Simulated assay, not measured.
Amino acid sequence: MAHVGTSVGWLGAIGASLALAVVALATTDPTVTNAVLVVLEPLGWAALVPLSLASLVSGVVQSLVSPWGLVRHYWVLIKLLMNVLAVGVLLLYMQTLAELAHLARASAVGGAVSRSASPVVHGAAAIALLVVALVLSVYKPRGRTGWGLRSRRAIGASHGTT
């Protein structure tokens, strides 16, 4: 429940960030653009980063205490790698959001506007990644890793089957 909740929350926070980024890119009002760019950074630190980390940690814990295991099935391993990648990119991207917020604050004083498609591109890519993770979670495609096959054989051997 914790993993699903934090993952859905993360997806929702990305959706909100993406909607704001689209508004910033589409509007002709420089005040709105600057305001959105200033807001995206604290939204990232207050919602995106904590939810992404909670999703990663709860997913690892859940896999370790469930029959699925952390590295027994390809779909779990792929989700883990996707989550680690997404969290890593997000943490690095927070520097970009800080810079965009800084430029927006400076632009607000000088009257210019700082436009960037970067938050839209990153938000759309993050949503696509999380939707793929969602599909993997729902459909759980077959396929065991080498580790999963060995552990299955070991369990079968201990029960007298192969």
Score class of each variant (00 low, 15 high):
residue 45 W to V: 13
residue 86 A to M: 14
residue 52 S to E: 03
residue 32 V to S: 07
residue 132 V to D: 01
residue 82 M to C: 13
residue 113 V to R: 10
residue 76 V to H: 04
residue 133 A to L: 00
residue 45 W to G: 10
residue 97 L to P: 09
residue 65 V to M: 03
residue 146 G to V: 02
residue 70 L to C: 05
residue 47 A to Y: 11
residue 14 I to W: 07
residue 41 E to D: 10
residue 56 L to S: 08
residue 73 H to T: 06
residue 37 L to C: 08
residue 24 A to R: 11
residue 86 A to I: 08
residue 45 W to Q: 09
residue 33 T to L: 01
residue 26 A to I: 01
residue 102 H to L: 10
residue 104 A to F: 05
residue 94 M to E: 15
residue 77 L to E: 09
residue 54 A to T: 11
residue 104 A to D: 05
residue 17 S to G: 15
residue 121 V to H: 03
residue 124 A to C: 04
residue 56 L to E: 03
residue 66 S to V: 08
residue 133 A to Y: 00
residue 65 V to I: 14
residue 141 P to H: 06
residue 113 V to T: 13
residue 126 A to T: 09
residue 14 I to P: 00
residue 63 S to I: 02
residue 105 R to N: 14
residue 131 V to Y: 07
residue 125 A to V: 13
residue 72 R to C: 07
residue 8 V to P: 01
residue 24 A to I: 07
residue 58 S to Y: 01
residue 121 V to K: 09
residue 100 L to N: 14
residue 113 V to A: 12
residue 113 V to K: 07
residue 123 G to H: 01
residue 29 D to T: 12
residue 83 N to I: 08
residue 139 Y to P: 00
residue 45 W to Y: 11
residue 69 G to H: 01
residue 107 S to T: 04
residue 57 V to I: 14
residue 132 V to G: 00
residue 67 P to Q: 08
residue 25 L to D: 13
residue 119 P to H: 06
residue 70 L to T: 00
residue 8 V to K: 05
residue 90 L to I: 04
residue 112 A to E: 15
residue 20 L to T: 12
residue 42 P to N: 07
residue 89 V to K: 05
